[in-house]
Design a protein around this nucleic acid. Structure first.
Lengths: 165, 165
DNA sequence: AAGCACACGTGATTC
DNA sequence: TGAATCACGTGTGCT
């Protein structure tokens, strides 16, 4: 297991000086073979490794909108979220480009919240020819159904409208 | 600086047992104050922290296509690449309207109508982070300028909004 | 003081 | 064998 055991070398007590620990186990000096220089290489390599990792971590911080000055764990968590979000919106953006079409469509994907009654989420997407006042009509219909719109994406293209709520 | 210095406590040599190092510096035992339990809490907290980070790292591994069994640095590098790639494809997925994703922008392309005064057409496109009430603010601004909106295209994507009038 | 977060040096493991 | 990666315990600083 990874413990501190039989420290054959001790570092400094002053300025990064490596000192041989006076340890004699059984026969002759097993330690202090040529290790001092090897150890230096080792821990310097490790430092370089940490630098690489932290560098990538920093570039991630710069790419994620609000993630500046977040601790390492939260940053990674945020990166995961953003990655999911981008994958999702990328998928449905390429699908939204096939702007459906000549036919009008209303699709409802609901997902229960765990409670039999009470709040649950549905996702409705509709696309049709746009006409003035359509949005307020939609809003009225939503209100009459006691639905609260959490997030809306509206796109109009060439007189067609797609609406994802 | 962060070195190993004057180890007042030594761990195990066997099964996670904490042993006081017989160190007497000058006057009386400065070490072994209340440290044993505090140290336990400390290193256990640190272990939990590492667990969180590595957990997120693992979920990242599962999300990135070919990044299974990559070392930590390469994984993060790959995550950066994929994040850029997704941002790019998400941006150009909005196709006809290529949303300038990073910077806010207001562009006005005016074209005279032939008359020096009187009605003329302008085409304004703006993109910025979306916030509630932004649309009505925009409408108010337009009204105060005595502008009539002939045609509007509105698209929202990932909290960004593009607006062509 | 008491908690968290980070960088460090080092033992173990793998190729 | 060295080189490279990881997990660990610890020192240190910030709050």
């Amino acid at each position: 297991m990874g413990h501190v055991q039989l420290p054959s070398l001790v570092l400094d007590s002053q300025r990064g000086e490596l000192v041989e620990a006076t340890v004699r186990v059984g026969r002759g000096g097993v330690s202090a073979e040529r290790s001092i220089v090897a150890l230096r290489n080792h821990c310097e390599a490790e430092r370089k490794r940490r630098a690489r990792i932290n560098a990538h971590l920093d570039t991630l911080r710069s790419m994620v909108p609000g993630a500046n000055k977040m601790d390492k764990a939260s940053l990674l968590s945020e990166v995961v979220s953003h990655l999911q979000e981008l994958k999702r919106s990328a998928a449905e953006a390429s699908e939204g480009l096939l702007m459906p079409t000549d036919i009008d469509e209303v699709r409802v994907e609901g997902q229960e919240n765990g409670l039999d009654v009470g709040p649950y989420l549905i996702r409705v997407s509709l696309s049709c020819d746009y006409k003035p006042g359509l949005l307020s009509d939609l809003r009225q219909a939503l209100d009459s159904l006691h639905l609260i719109v959490m997030k809306a994406e509206i796109a109009t293209l060439e007189g067609r409208m797609k609406n994802v709520l």
